[in-house]
Amino acid sequence: MSTQEERLQSGKTYYHAFKLYIQNENRVDDDATFTIGEKGVVIKPVKNERNIVTWENADGPVASMTFLADSDADYYCPRLSTRWNDADYLDYFHDVDAYLFDFVDNPRVPAATRPTLSLYNPFVDEDGDLTVRESRIHVYEVDGDGELVDKTHLFNFGENDDGDRVLSIRTFTLGTYIVSDGKADLPERKPSGRPADVEKPTIEVNNNRKPVPNTGR
């Protein structure tokens, strides 16, 4: 073993393999605010307390969530994206205005009771007035198969404590939602189950014997 200090001579190159670990920023907070699209941050809510998470852009809040954290609250990733990355969904909204709320990775919220997720109504002008009738607004959710499902009937149209118009739903799992000012042009779903015009087999009963299905023979 050499006892002399090893030095890199001028003009020579030294290569060495090593591992680099990058950790997400961890926060413990009961009133967290995030910029839309912000990455690399995970939140640990304050246990047994009312927690609020707000997502905003340059124009102000876009969505918020309120929940009572459970007694063993763990970290979760509350990232929200509003960018249209999948052109397939755009094809369903040719003649209407639509806004995407994509909670990336669909994190389950560590809450003791079902959290309230509020999407700020995108069809509101600077004075807080609706630009379209509420009856025209629809909310769609992307299901596990990637299909759009109309969930308008599950959302409550109203105002939050600050008087902002929001669309609210109670859910443990944040999903991907699209809010539009009209119905999406969705493909018709194929009917499931036995066709209505198929005759059911008849059953005969003879002399107290067991029913014998008609096999057509």
Results as ranks from 00 to 15, higher is better:
42 V>G: 02
42 V>A: 06
42 V>Q: 10
42 V>F: 05
43 I>A: 00
43 I>Y: 00
43 I>T: 01
43 I>Q: 00
43 I>F: 00
44 K>G: 00
44 K>Y: 01
44 K>Q: 11
44 K>T: 05
44 K>W: 00
44 K>L: 03
45 P>T: 08
45 P>H: 06
45 P>F: 03
45 P>R: 02
46 V>M: 04
46 V>P: 03
46 V>Q: 06
47 K>Y: 06
48 N>R: 14
48 N>I: 06
48 N>W: 12
49 E>W: 01
49 E>Y: 04
50 R>P: 03
50 R>D: 12
50 R>F: 09
51 N>W: 00
51 N>M: 00
52 I>K: 15
52 I>V: 15
52 I>C: 11
52 I>W: 10
52 I>Y: 11
52 I>N: 13
53 V>T: 12
53 V>G: 01
53 V>S: 04
53 V>M: 11
54 T>V: 15
54 T>F: 07
54 T>H: 10
54 T>L: 12
54 T>I: 14
54 T>W: 06
55 W>H: 13
55 W>D: 09
56 E>Q: 15
56 E>A: 15
56 E>G: 07
56 E>Y: 13
58 A>I: 07
58 A>H: 13
59 D>V: 12
59 D>G: 12
60 G>D: 08
60 G>W: 02
60 G>P: 03
61 P>W: 12
61 P>K: 15
61 P>M: 09
62 V>S: 05
62 V>H: 03
62 V>L: 11
63 A>Q: 03
63 A>E: 03
64 S>H: 05
64 S>F: 02
65 M>L: 15
65 M>S: 04
65 M>R: 03
65 M>G: 09
65 M>H: 04
66 T>I: 10
66 T>Y: 08
67 F>H: 08
68 L>H: 09
68 L>N: 10
68 L>R: 08
68 L>F: 07
68 L>T: 09
69 A>Y: 01
70 D>V: 01
70 D>N: 11
70 D>F: 08
70 D>Y: 07
70 D>L: 01
71 S>M: 10
71 S>T: 14
71 S>A: 15
73 A>W: 02
73 A>K: 05
73 A>G: 06
74 D>K: 14
75 Y>F: 15
76 Y>H: 08
76 Y>L: 09
77 C>K: 15
77 C>H: 12
77 C>M: 15
77 C>D: 15
78 P>W: 02
